[in-house]
Write a protein that binds this DNA or RNA. Structure first.
Lengths: 223, 223
DNA sequence: TAATGTGAACGCCTTCACAGCA
DNA sequence: TGCTGTGAAGGCGTTCACATTA
């Protein structure tokens, strides 16, 4: 292959690969050494060295044969691939315990993601502040979201509130959702040929109930 | 998800199938009608009808050709498969905002999962109560866990605390972990040929950072 | 020599197509 | 007739094996 800049759209990249990139990034940032081999990165992240090499090779040839990967440069590269070299503007919905925990966690650990607004319908919460961001009522929700340029929404709201809210947000251009409510969000497939909408669901019940299965199965299996 | 050794059952059941069972169960309980076809279940859960049929067929022939599946019976069957016909005893670690939210959510929505203990090192929290369960200090952690028969642990603790804690718990027989700390837990592979340990990680950073990728990619793709 | 980058083989899931049965 | 249950086909992702190169 010709040397130099590798086209970023050359091949289709597996979702599974994308989901491993944050782990590589975390490991690279924690190490901060000069170089790491794919084997070392594998140990740090729990993936095989072949997996590490294949994943990274989708985006270009960042390593040096016989040596390994340059930690700093590779970290920058992954940040760029994930789009974390530009600040991601997020809005949080729901200032309950879950929302509060999320806001604090993001503020404390993600320089690349900024929570630009926190919305909650409770009038008693409006005006308070969580991790440096004011809690706002839902009056003029759409106006605020558009004014702030919110790209993604984090939904920490009750089950019934999630879908109507998501629809309103999708209508004003929010294209990513991190949904903690135990419902399958079904949104219209993006208005008028606009960019697709991505939904990531985090469902505690699924995790708990599948955990129940694996714990139970292993119980019977050992007999 | 953790891989885990697969026991000898009739057929090997894909992990992906297990992860869909809670969605079927939720849909069946919400409907509560007499019968549902695989197509109807598919619409409710967002999966294809073939997928629904294949998943259910792994465990037996529950449906009637030309008719569909009996909602009540199928729900019971799925609860049995997941092991939810016996109460799952869980302990929660960390009584911060996240832990509080989790405890309340589980208490409010899961009759089949019971949080039998909440542990937190903060002496000011010990003695208080969350969702009807007392918060306990870490004194005699092992004794309490064994006495209560804790099967799974929910870890809502700081990053640094997660792995040492998990090791202590694994040593006294806890076999399932739901880990919210952003670390790859690496536990010894189950002591003396005992049952395997299952770890489910819920990592907010991974979800946020991959969401950043998809939002970004679609941006460039549409131009 | 050591470790990357990559075609090929493999295995797991999903989708397809249809046989089987109330 | 209508919908389930299931072998076969197909697709996707991981693992293997090795050619490649600093």
């Amino acid at each position: 292959m010709a040397k130099g800049v590798v086209p970023r759209t050359a091949r289709r990249i597996p979702d599974a690969t994308i989901r491993r990139l944050p782990a590589y990034l975390r490991a690279l940032e924690a190490e901060a050494g000069q170089r790491l081999t794919s084997a070392a990165l594998g140990v740090l992240t729990g993936f095989s060295s072949e997996q590490v090499r294949k994943d990274l090779a989708y985006f270009g040839a960042f390593g040096t044969r016989g040596v390994g990967y340059p930690a700093q440069d590779l970290a920058s590269e992954i940040r760029h691939i994930l789009g974390l070299d530009r600040e991601l503007k997020a809005a949080l919905f729901g200032a309950g315990h879950l929302g509060t925990a999320l806001a604090r966690y993001v503020a404390a650990t993600h320089r690349d993601v900024r929570i630009v607004a926190i919305f909650d319908p409770d009038p008693e919460k409006a005006g308070s502040e969580i991790a440096g961001t004011a809690v706002t009522s839902l009056v003029d929700l759409e106006g605020e979201v558009e004014r702030l340029g919110v790209a993604v929404a984090i939904l920490a709201v009750p089950e019934a509130a999630a879908e109507p809210l998501a629809r309103r947000l999708a209508a004003v251009g929010v294209r990513g959702f991190l949904n903690f409510a135990p419902v399958m969000l079904s949104l219209p497939p993006a208005l008028d040929g606009g960019p697709p909408i991505t939904i990531h669901n985090i469902d505690l019940s699924i995790e708990l109930q599948t955990l129940a299965y694996f714990v139970q199965v292993h119980e019977t299996a050992s007999v």
